[in-house]
Amino acid sequence: MRVNAGNLKKGEFVFFQGEICQVQKADFYSPGKGAALMKARLKNLISAKNVEYAYKSNEQVEVLDVASVDMQYIYKDQENLYFMDERTFNQSALPISVVGEISRFFKEGEKMFVYMFDDKPLTIRPPMSVRLKIIEADDAAKGDTVSGAKKPVTVETGATVMVPIFVKVGETISINPETGEYTGRV
């Protein structure tokens, strides 16, 4: 689908210099002395590198029509995360560098959506929230009663999250995986 670059949105996929990129950020910007621009940060889904680019806002850009496929996250190794399509049992690998920091919160066996284009996996669609159990936490330091005080805890995937001091080991919490923030107890 062709759109004006001025209507590009975060999360969409485009071809940039012949390679598929995902829009990480897109901000309208008019310098007043040249064409109105769309300042975009594009992540190359092969090299995992971000590139800053400025489109003219009226430039036509091809936004890729991607499918999002329900898959199960099965395991990871040093480089990749592996997913399985539960209907076809086909496995797909995605580089950790492409998926990014968010993969710290993936638990084996969880269902997730993977974006596909021409039957090739691109990246995952970030879940709104993940639920994980706390496996390690210090007791709050004595006397630390300041409201809103936080402490670091480790969740079952090994990631560290800042939580309010009253949250304890064994509890399950919800986390916004994109920001890594604690959003509540479950």
Binding site: P31, G34, L37, K39, A54, Y55
Partner: peptide
């Protein structure tokens, strides 16, 4: 010029 100024 504007595009390159903004991006780079």
């Amino acid at each position: 010029f504007s595009q390159m100024l903004a991006a780079e």
